[in-house]
Nucleic acid binder design. Structure first.
Lengths: 389, 389
DNA sequence: GTTTTTAGTGCGCTCTCCGGACGAAAGGTG
DNA sequence: CACCTTTCGTCCGGAGAGCGCACTAAAAAC
């Protein structure tokens, strides 16, 4: 079949094949739908689909077509991506947790596990523990190592594009470590790494609240503050791969020293630990993020005030970024991303500090995937890389 | 070579044709060179080139090939983009000047003219005057209207993508005006419009100091402050086309009221008129921008101080943007763009306020095209749109 | 039962690309 | 000078890809 001949014609064919499968990843469709969606002729689509069926990549649904919603005519035969053999692994390393998932190649998560780990200070230990969790999850899912194609992984720190190492200074226990290579050695799988906000953004754009949008800022507010920037439908990583460092924007000339060495960083004023620290003295109970979000929903005045102030501070930095990038949507993620007070504060600052036309063009909303955005993005990354060959 | 977008054979052919011409825009090449450069076979390249010669788009150079630098063998016949018939028009509308240019379709400027005009307050009058200048320049260049394919134009204000109208509030005399349509009516030519910083960025990336770079921030400091943002080699315009509004980033809570209605905008502290206003009292002579740049070069302490302070202020905003976007280069343009003190100040602020890795990755330099960047970009825009059909 | 409408497929055509063969035009070598 | 080598450009046949058209299939509408 696959002659070694390199050729543009062949490439055209594969491009069209990819167009079909990517359209099909949205759900089952008929060949006619595919023809309309790709702009190709029905003949061509038929032959492409035949090829894909032959290769085991798609299947005709025996599912008798629903009585064709609108009109008359012969009912279509739906085809769908066949649940491919094997699967992929997703790993989400946060500041205080590790989450692993095993998914099939359509992105459907089969097994998921999460553990509290002191990630920041122990790089190698964390990776050992993570590898063990992955192996356990694979056993639960009943997958052999040989059936797993790749792993996607996020770390809560910027990564240098070339070396894939953790950028200096943010995570003390990870300095000069290349998490991808390390986990790859432990698992014997190709491991693709990106930072947490980028993968959260990827997840929301591909499978979440920003599906199909071109220009989106995904802002993660959790142990730190970071942004995943999607422009023209693609993740923007920057020259050295460390774009999106919203957490270290200067919001005050003087302020506490940040772990990055500067002072006045956004992260020193807005982060889950910091906000808990501010709130705790006023409450009898022990606060954690979940409890704070509950209190926010219940209308607790103190919590609302602190969270909306935090939103205003983040929004101040976001307003400048909106002026520069004129995005369609600002999407909130991270453990605090679902707080409505935070969103209100951000909205207020954008309206106040951004140009009116810019502010009018941007929607502010919480992500649909919540704290699972990163793991979904990690799975998506693995699938994308496997599909790309 | 270029990934064929999904579609027909015809589209593949045009993609390959484009690959050839784009490779050829780097200079004369032989067919064999083109084959190596595109990855296509010599046969295919030959047929493509024959087609292009037939269409008058490229020509064989009679120029007998140099004795083939290295080896023996039949000397190649070089082909080159033929200077195409007709030309394009570029129009640069600044706050206080109008500049027009007539260029041939390779971007070589044949005639250029500049006039001081009070642009801000008189939209329609400016367009009348501009049209007259264009007509005069065409006469000088000896071009008939019918030989001119299109005009590119920049205006010193954000433009709404859909309506192509000047965004509200910035240029008082232009409110609700669609400069493209207006000039189009006056000239009887298709007119493509973008804002000044975007076209300056386009010019520097295509023909200036940032040639070939992927992620570039072009910052224009003149009557206002604006940015043209190039990411992944493409101009980023944003959802509604108004990205790049650096001038209205908030750099101080309280400050003079800006023409945009806010206060504390960067533009109220850093702009050519503002800086002249600050400097003038200390000097006996009447200052203008040229004189200030001279004094800067001569090492005048006052000017250096004011310009480097201005640079630090701009750099403060740029540092945040660099953190977010991690660009390869910050390029300075506008009438003050060539000031070395300004560049020094910007560099200092980026080093101070941006993440170390981000700061290390970015070069700060003055644009190569100076105050002609906009007009070059306008010409480039016209050529690009004509080439795109 | 007939018509209409939509879905899927087979056939022939054209377009595009490629590999190999061939002539062309230089330099190098005896 | 004849001959070989090397590179360039072209010609030719063949294969891959997509499309239009015609045809069958299967349902709803009349």
């Amino acid at each position: 079949m696959t002659a070694p001949s390199t050729g543009s014609l062949e490439r055209l064919r594969t491009a069209n094949r990819r167009a079909v499968t990517s359209l099909l990843s949205g759900g089952p469709m008929s060949r006619a739908d595919l023809a309309r969606g790709t702009g190709l002729s029905r003949t061509t689509v038929s032959s492409l689909v035949a090829e894909l069926i032959d290769g085991g990549l798609v299947t005709e649904t025996t599912d008798k077509a629903r009585p064709h919603k609108g009109g008359s005519g012969r009912p279509p035969v739906l085809v769908t991506l066949s649940a491919p053999s094997g699967g992929v692994v997703g790993v989400d390393v946060g500041h205080r947790h590790v989450r692993v998932a095993v998914a099939n190649r359509t992105g459907h998560v089969l097994v998921e596990d999460c553990a509290a780990v002191d990630v920041d200070t122990h790089g190698a230990d964390t990776l050992d523990r993570t590898a063990a969790m992955v192996r356990a999850a694979l056993r639960t899912a009943g997958l052999e190592r040989s059936e797993v194609h790749a792993a996607g992984m996020c770390v809560p720190a910027p990564l240098d594009r070339r070396s894939a190492r953790v950028s200096t200074g943010i995570l003390p226990g990870w300095r000069e470590l290349s998490p991808g290579e390390e986990l790859q050695r432990r698992l014997g799988l190709p491991v693709y790494v990106d930072n947490d906000a980028n993968l959260g953004a990827l997840a929301e754009v591909e499978r979440g609240a920003a599906r199909g949008l071109a220009d989106v800022l995904y802002v993660k507010v959790a142990s730190g503050v970071g942004a995943g920037i999607v422009l023209g439908g693609r993740l923007h990583r920057g020259t050295s791969g460390i774009a999106g460092e919203l957490g270290h924007v200067q919001v005050g000339e003087d302020g506490p020293i940040c772990r990055c060495g500067n002072r006045g960083c956004l992260e020193t004023l807005v982060s889950a630990p910091r906000l808990l620290h501010v709130l705790q003295p006023a409450y009898d109970e022990e606060l954690d993020v979940e409890r704070v979000l509950e209190l926010d929903d219940d209308g607790d005045a103190g919590v609302r005030r602190v969270l909306s102030d935090a939103g205003r501070t983040v929004g101040r930095a976001l307003a400048d970024l909106c002026n520069a990038l004129n995005p369609e949507m600002v999407l909130l993620g991270g453990s605090l991303g679902t707080s409505s007070s935070l969103a209100v504060g951000i909205r207020a600052s954008i309206d106040r500090y951004a140009q009116p036309d810019t502010a009018a063009a941007v929607r502010v909303a919480a992500g649909r995937l919540g704290d699972r955005a990163e793991i979904v993005g990690a799975v998506s990354l693995a699938i994308a890389r496997v599909a790309a060959g």
